[in-house]
């Protein structure tokens, strides 16, 4: 029997369901995954649905795609609560919570315009990740990013 919630988020045959996304972050998750209005990906998104653990949450379903490790790491930075469900032939074959890496490389742009990682030097940005609350400290210039992380994702 279908209820209203199930209608909102229909099951998919193959692909990935990203659940428990912090309310309001689903659009940033799509950005991380490179899903724009012009791509042909089949994507469902619900925002601000009630959640027992989070109060409200967003959910993103992408058909026929499984995420790369780097994409999951990026999602963890903007929504540490997110969980990833891999769906194959309607079954959840793998389910896990995202885990924030201790160091992120080439994922975030340093907010300090005078940082060496923002020049033409052949270096990749590197940040040390601290949790509770999330703080990214640039390994080069030590500037800290603690809010609006999604805006600085590469």
């Amino acid at each position: 029997m279908n209820n209203h919630h199930e209608l909102r988020v229909r099951p998919i045959v193959n692909g990935t369901v990203i659940d428990h996304i912090l309310a309001g972050q689903a659009i940033n998750v799509l950005r991380i995954l490179g899903i724009t209005g012009v791509s042909d990906a089949v994507v469902s998104m619900v925002m601000n649905v009630p959640s027992i653990t989070l109060g409200h949450k967003d959910i993103v379903k992408i058909e026929n795609r499984e995420l790369e490790e780097k994409e999951v790491d990026k999602i963890s930075l903007i929504s540490p609560s997110a969980s990833i469900n891999i769906i194959r032939d309607f079954d959840v074959v793998d389910k896990y919570h995202v885990e924030m890496p201790s160091i992120v490389e080439g994922m975030v742009k340093c907010t300090n315009p005078n940082c060496i990682s923002n020049t033409n030097e052949p270096v990749t940005s590197k940040f040390v990740v601290r949790t509770d609350p999330i703080r990214l400290r640039c390994l080069y210039c030590e500037h800290v990013i603690s809010e609006k992380i999604a805006e600085y994702l590469l």
């Binding site: 005078n114 060496i116 990682s117 020049t119």
Partner: peptide, 13 residues
């Protein structure tokens, strides 16, 4: 000595 923050850290690499 350099004008950019983090230059020495990068130079080390």
């Amino acid at each position: 000595r350099h004008t950019s923050e983090g230059a020495a850290q990068m130079a080390m690499e």
